[in-house]
Computed example of a mutant assay.
Amino acid sequence: MKVTIICSDSIHPVYPYLEQWIKQNIKSHDISIYSSITDIEKGGDILFLISCTEIVKKPIRDMFRYTLVLHASDLPEGRGWSPHIWDVINGKDTLILSLLNAEDGVDTGDIWQKRYISLDGSELYEEINHKVFEAELELMSWACENIDDSKAKKQDTQSSTADYHRKRTPEDSRLSLDNSIEEQFNLLRVCDPKRFPAYIIRNGQRYNIKLEKVNDE
């Protein structure tokens, strides 16, 4: 198969996982990866949109037999931005990853597959990412091997569970001085320590906070 991947940010933590997947599959498929749809010169079989911030319109999608999105929610619930981050903050211990068709309406396409990701409540940012990204690679491989023999299912567009998450901002990593660590533990877990670290502001001074596991010997 001729496979194209769009990942908008080369420093996104998923990027090394995509590079790993390409290395493992390059002998079986013709694979290219770009940071923008403007870099696409030719169509192909599958266009994967992984952490892609661009809206990919129909003329681009029509260059490929399938244009697929990986979205970490139980669609139609949790459309929009960073759904698994919001889920962890809200206390969920199971994340759901959906493989769906890209459409003009964000996260509204037919669904091919879902994967369930269990959390025990102790995982920190990188560990959560690892579980989500490994599931993404699994679904990418599934698509390359099975999509021609499978059928996607339509989303329940009338479902009362359909909702949209807003885009998170650095301010969403701010902790409250008035709330306990226990109350804010899930927020601490999902803050990207490099790009969007947790922080507090006290007497006008900002302090970044890093949560790190320590294994007792």
Score class of each variant (00 low, 15 high):
I111Q: 01
K57W: 13
I96T: 15
V69G: 10
D172N: 13
L75V: 13
D62G: 08
I50D: 00
V214P: 10
Q24W: 00
S98Q: 09
K153N: 05
L139H: 01
W112G: 06
K213Q: 09
I22Y: 00
K27A: 07
E145M: 00
K42N: 03
E103N: 02
W112A: 00
Q155N: 04
S36Q: 04
I89H: 04
A143W: 00
I5H: 01
R79E: 10
E19Y: 02
N186Q: 10
N90V: 08
P16S: 08
P83N: 09
S8M: 09
S160M: 14
V56M: 03
D87F: 02
P83F: 10
L175H: 04
I89L: 13
E182R: 13
R65Y: 08
Y125G: 10
L75F: 08
W142V: 03
W142G: 06
E41P: 05
H12S: 12
L100T: 06
L187T: 15
P16T: 07
I201M: 11
E171R: 11
E217I: 14
E126G: 07
M1W: 01
E145C: 01
D192K: 02
I33P: 02
L124W: 05
S36G: 04
N186R: 13
T169F: 14
E136D: 12
G109E: 04
I22H: 01
Y34V: 07
D120R: 14
L100R: 05
E183L: 09
S150Q: 02
T169A: 08
I50E: 03
S32W: 02
R195C: 14
Q158N: 14
S32F: 01
V56P: 03
K210Q: 15
S118M: 12
I89Y: 05
I60D: 07
E54V: 15
I89E: 11
D148Y: 03
N25Q: 10
C144E: 00
L137M: 14
K58Y: 09
I128W: 11
S8P: 12
N101Q: 11
P13F: 14
I181L: 12
L119S: 08
E103P: 15
K23Q: 01
I147M: 11
I60S: 04
N208L: 08
F48R: 01
K194Q: 03
G105K: 12
E19K: 07
A102V: 06
D45P: 01
I31T: 01
S35R: 05
N146M: 08
S141D: 05
V56K: 05
G204Y: 07
R206C: 01
V132E: 05
S36C: 03
I147S: 07
A135H: 00
P13D: 02
D149A: 09
D156S: 08
K42L: 04
R115C: 06
K154L: 13
A198W: 06
D216S: 08
H71L: 11
D104E: 09
A198T: 09
H12L: 06
S73A: 15
P59F: 02
E138P: 14
R168C: 09
M63G: 01
S180H: 04
L97I: 06
R65M: 03
I201W: 12
R115N: 15
G204I: 14
D178W: 14
Y199D: 05
D172I: 02
I26Q: 05
I6W: 02
S176D: 12
